[in-house]
Write a protein that binds this DNA or RNA. Structure first.
Length: 862
DNA sequence: TTAGGGTTAG
């Protein structure tokens, strides 16, 4: 009784770590200065008869008892309630039911005296609309005014605390519930459950579990709530233990239990377990409902498995479960990912049929779907018809315009949205920045990037990723790397998208140290070396000339898939190790991984490099039967290369002639290379003409023709360039780059300004190698001639000379070239590698040449 | 009167 008279004993002696918690000394900073007690002058609280009649008998009973328990007024004869208050409370309910929340609030605010019923009506009006912030704020005011919630209202407020993440108020209400005796009896199970859920949702699982253990009675909801708590904290093991425990105690899991588990596994990306649980659910005789299916559909969409998501949606329909707005929205989102306009339209009609089309959720998915499918007008129409647009609506429409290249329209919405009381969030800014950078307006993108924090929006990892990916996309690789370093210096943690965005920019010979730095960053930030990152690293290490590191990443790969195998097989091909590539192919098959299109191209190429014509041809001929893969252009290219290398030009030509696909320039290029290598001028002419017909003015044709001329001494008649150069960017400088001690030096053909020392070095090298240079045919280059006459020298010779004189002996010389190597330079590099005992790596657009001890890994065929 | 599902950017 003492407790009832002094409902806040802890105010005098706060003990913060007590369980159940005591009332805090202050409910909120500054909100509650004094201990709150029921005021002795509080107006009478007897339930008005008129409203009582509308309530159930049980409710009536509970209400009167709760008022007595609260000790809100001294015992005595029931006091009269002024009829005006009763009428006002009724009016709040009427307004609220009619959707006039503002009017309801006006009545409430104007009341001179507010009893528990008035508070319940007003709080209920907010709670039913999910306006949990308002519920929490009102609840605090209510307690401050000395009114305490009954067992019904307390559950509503606890629910609001759970959603609004208000652990402080939640603890206080727990204390109220304990002290007022709402937690002990069978009929109080819902209150206990609400307390439990409040702790679980606010992340205090220890308290949730204590409530759970103390509950004298538990129902299905109790178990569900506790399981939910563990699922939310990703403690699947404990959640599954509870599932077993509830069954042992005689409570069979219901549809909500299964849905809780399935949805949390689906959200976490563990779709296989979610599917397994779906099976168990069906086996136990519980039919999956629309929530179960929606969890699976959306989980699959998030895991980039949209095709499966749509199959799942169909399964739901076949099971006779009618989709609602949420499930349709998820399915539309799957269509958006797959750009399935027709299926998206079908779902649109279905949304109209079930009346969810004006629902903001379906509307948002439709805007996104139409925009991604390129139907920007339809997207705009849906957007304009959404009655209460939220942040998702605006962001989706802005993204739609930006992706379609209409940055002006996107920016118009970006500026306009705040006039509609929708605050721009980090995604809005990111979308706009991404739109500008993707459309080549880097300046505006960086401007917005600089501005956003002054508008109170904090940049996140995605913001940085957009700048990095955009810089890579626009060819500003060094800028991308600077941004990457800057984000780390500002303690912004990179994620797997950062890594995947930046790696491809440095998958080349002259940036090997950058690949190592990126790899170190993966370790430093403890980023999971998941499939995609590992595959990207294998690829990057391989292309940066470091096959050993590529193999190391592959060996430690946690989840090798066909892409990982393709990466490592292609790495060995690139490094001139076709035999190892084929060994890996066998291992892959032994591990039960089926080859795909790319694997078979690599295998045919490997046989080609080894001169194993028959094995390669067999692979090509049997691929449809053995692996159900129809030969495509790439496979024909590999076959032409295989036959061409061995000089079987006639067979190669017959293959091209008989192929069911139209040969593209790559097929003819492979054939031309073979004809040039084997000195067959007639066939080289033929190939050059075909190539010119496909791609007039292709600079590669001109180069191959000149190679043929060099080789045979005969002129090759190909049409001169009539169209602009294709295959390279207009601003790209023809030349090569060499990496020395993490610095990159760029040379262009014949440009010797400021390179006097290098030219001198080159001269001395040539003298050292003496007659050898003349043996390979130096053409216009004569070491005894003056500098001016060296202008015709190819840049890789300069780069090699520069590398020899500027790097230590044990370092490899790494060079990349924009044009293919000529015979002279190739022979020169071989000689240098022997004479100077150096490893030289040169990557041209076609081949990685590894020169060592006078030999090249390409075996002189490229 | 309690418990489960959704849509946007890199």
């Amino acid at each position: 009784m003492e407790l009832l008279l002094h409902p806040f004993p802890s105010l005098l002696h706060p003990k913060p770590h007590h369980f159940p918690p005591q009332f805090p000394s202050k409910l909120r900073h500054g909100r509650l200065q004094e201990p709150v007690m029921a005021s002795p002058q509080a107006p009478p609280l007897t339930l008005p008869l008129s409203l009582q009649e509308t309530r159930s008998a049980a409710h009536r009973h509970d209400r009167s008892s709760s008022i007595q328990e609260a000790g809100a007024r001294p015992p005595g004869p029931p006091a009269r309630v002024e009829p005006r208050f009763v009428a006002e409370t009724k009016l709040i309910t009427v307004h609220s039911c009619a959707g006039r929340l503002g009017d309801a609030r006006k009545v409430f605010d104007g009341m001179r005296h507010r009893d528990l019923l008035a508070w319940s009506a007003m709080i209920g009006a907010y709670a039913i609309r999910g306006m949990y912030g308002e519920v929490v704020a009102l609840a605090v005011s209510m307690v401050e005014e000395g009114v305490l919630p009954d067992r019904f209202l307390i559950t509503r407020i606890l629910q609001a605390c759970a959603y609004a993440d208000d652990l402080e108020l939640g603890r206080m209400l727990h204390s109220v519930a304990v002290k007022r005796g709402f937690m002990g009896r069978v009929r109080d199970v819902p209150v206990g459950n609400s307390v439990l859920v409040m702790y679980a949702k606010c992340g205090d699982l220890v308290c949730a579990r204590k409530v759970f253990e103390k509950m004298a009675c538990r129902d299905l909801g109790t178990w569900n709530s506790m399981i939910f708590g563990y699922c939310q904290s990703a403690d699947w093991e404990e959640a599954r233990r509870l599932l077993d425990a509830m069954r042992q105690e005689g409570t069979e899991p219901g549809v909500v239990t299964w849905n809780t588990l399935i949805s949390s596994y689906a959200r976490s990306g563990d779709l296989d377990v979610a599917m397994e649980l779906l099976g168990q659910m069906e086996e136990s005789g519980v039919a999956p409902d629309v929530v179960t299916w929606t969890s699976l559909v959306s989980g699959l969409v998030h895991m980039d498995r949209s095709d499966e998501a749509l199959r799942c949606f169909i399964r739901m329909r076949l099971a006779g479960v009618e989709p609602n707005g949420m499930s349709i929205a998820s399915a539309i989102s799957a269509c958006a990912c797959l750009k399935l306009l027709n299926q998206g339209r079908e779902l649109h009609s279905h949304a109209i049929k079930v009346g969810s089309v004006n629902n903001v959720l379906s509307g948002n998915s439709l805007v996104d779907m139409y925009a991604k499918c390129g139907e920007i007008v339809s997207a705009q129409r849906i957007f304009s018809e959404i009655p209460e647009k939220d942040i998702f609506s605006w962001n989706s429409m802005i993204a739609g315009y930006a992706q379609a290249g209409y940055c002006g329209k996107a920016y118009e919405l970006f500026c306009k949205m705040e006039n509609y009381d929708v605050r721009r969030n980090v995604i809005t800014w990111n979308t706009m920045i991404s739109g500008y950078i993707r459309n080549g307006d880097d300046e505006r993108a960086f401007e917005l990037f600089q501005m956003m924090e002054s508008y109170g929006v904090k940049r996140d990892t995605a913001t940085w990723n957009i700048l990095i990916a955009g810089s890579v996309h626009n060819g500003y690789y060094d800028r991308a790397f600077r941004i990457f370093r800057q984000m780390q210096s500002l303690l912004m943690r990179p994620d797997y998208i950062t890594i995947l965005s930046i790696i491809p920019a440095f998958a080349n010979l002259i940036a090997s140290w950058k690949v190592r730095e990126i790899h170190a960053c993966v370790f430093h930030h403890n980023l999971e070396l998941d499939g995609k990152i590992a595959n990207a690293l294998i690829n990057a290490y391989s292309k940066s000339g470091d096959l050993a590191s590529a193999c190391a990443v592959f060996d430690m790969h946690p989840s090798r898939n066909i892409i990982s195998w393709n990466c490592i097989i292609l790495a060995h091909l690139l490094h001139g190790s076709p035999n190892e590539a084929l060994i890996l192919f066998s291992q892959m098959k032994q591990e039960g991984v089926l080859p795909d299109h790319t694997t078979l191209v690599a295998v045919i190429k490997a046989y080609g490099l080894m001169g194993k014509i028959s094995e390669g041809s067999q692979t090509f001929l049997n691929m449809a039967n053995d692996y159900n893969i129809t030969p495509e252009l790439d496979h024909y290219v590999a076959m032409v290369d295989l036959l061409g290398r061995s000089g079987r030009l006639k067979e190669a030509y017959e293959l091209i002639d008989a192929m069911p696909l139209i040969p593209n320039s790559t097929v003819w290029e492979a054939f031309l290379s073979a004809a040039v290598r084997h000195g067959n001028v007639r066939l080289a002419h033929l190939a050059a003409r075909e190539l010119s017909a496909i791609d007039p003015g292709d600079h590669r044709v001109q180069r191959l023709a000149s190679s043929l001329q060099d080789l045979t001494g005969k002129s090759v008649d190909v049409p001169k360039e009539t169209a602009p150069n294709k295959g390279r960017k207009s601003d790209e400088v023809e030349g090569c780059s060499v990496e020395i001690r993490n610095n990159v030096y760029v040379f262009s053909n014949g440009d010797i300004v400021g390179l006097e020392d290098t030219v001198a070095e080159l001269k001395s090298m040539m003298i050292k190698m003496g007659h050898s240079m003349l043996d390979i045919g130096v053409g216009s280059l004569d070491v005894e001639e003056e500098k001016e006459e060296i202008v015709g020298v190819h840049c890789e010779k300069l780069a090699i000379a520069f590398g020899i004189s500027n790097s230590s002996h044990f370092k490899k010389i790494r060079i990349i070239k924009t044009a293919r190597m000529c015979n002279h330079c190739h022979s020169f590099a071989k000689l240098v590698s022997k004479k100077y005992e150096r490893h030289i790596l040169i990557k041209d657009p076609k081949c990685l040449h590894k020169f060592e001890d006078g030999k090249c890994s390409c075996e002189d065929y490229w």
